[in-house]
Simulated assay, not measured.
Amino acid sequence: METELRHEPDLARYTLWQDGRTVGLADYRVTPSEVRFIHTEVDPAHRRQGIAGRLIEFALDDVHARTDLRVVAECSYVEKWIDDHAEYQDLLTRGT
């Protein structure tokens, strides 16, 4: 199974693709000081495979590498993921 993670800035979205199909997405909104993650979704047929976690890790690593903006987790999944991964919590306080 071929897996690809993508940042699609024109859609304000990170996606995870398997075999040419989008199976997970994380939508965000950018403000002058923040990247606000507003929604995460995984195709029901692909849940419980760690897709959402891989997607959020990819997205947060990208935000960290590309910007100095603070991350705001409006999405409850992103909020819990960051809570469970202490090494990403600094993203919540950058630029403040």
Rank of each mutant, 00 (worst) to 15 (best):
Y28D: 03
T40G: 02
S76Q: 08
D83C: 03
E79R: 08
T93S: 15
D27P: 04
P9V: 14
R6Y: 01
L5N: 05
D62T: 14
G53T: 04
E8T: 10
T22Y: 00
D83F: 02
Y14T: 02
K80M: 13
Y28K: 03
E8V: 14
L5R: 06
E74P: 00
Y14C: 01
G53R: 08
E4A: 07
A65W: 07
H7E: 09
D68E: 15
G20E: 10
G24F: 02
R94F: 05
G53I: 00
L16Q: 10
T40H: 04
G53M: 11
T15P: 10
A86M: 06
G20Q: 03
Y77C: 11
F37A: 03
G50F: 00
D62V: 01
E2C: 03
L5F: 09
D68M: 13
L69Y: 04
L91S: 11
T22M: 09
D43T: 06
F37W: 05
A59M: 04
T93H: 15
A73M: 03
R29G: 06
Q49C: 03
L5T: 09
A73G: 05
H46Q: 13
G20W: 03
V72Y: 02
I38N: 06
D62H: 15
E87D: 12
D84H: 09
H85G: 14
P44H: 10
T22D: 04
E74Y: 04
W17S: 08
H7V: 08
V72L: 07
G95W: 07
K80I: 09
R29W: 08
D90K: 12
E2W: 03
E87W: 06
L69E: 06
E2F: 07
L11W: 12
S33M: 13
T93I: 14
T40C: 09
Y77F: 15
L16F: 02
I82V: 15
S76V: 02
V35A: 02
I82W: 04
T31P: 10
L11I: 07
Y77G: 09
D10E: 15
P44A: 10
D61E: 14
Y28R: 01
T96M: 06
H39C: 05
A45G: 12
V78D: 05
S33I: 11
A86S: 11
D84Y: 05
M1H: 03
Q49W: 00
R21K: 08
D19N: 15
L55T: 00
W17C: 09
L55H: 01
V63L: 11
G50C: 01
E8Y: 04
R70C: 13
M1N: 03
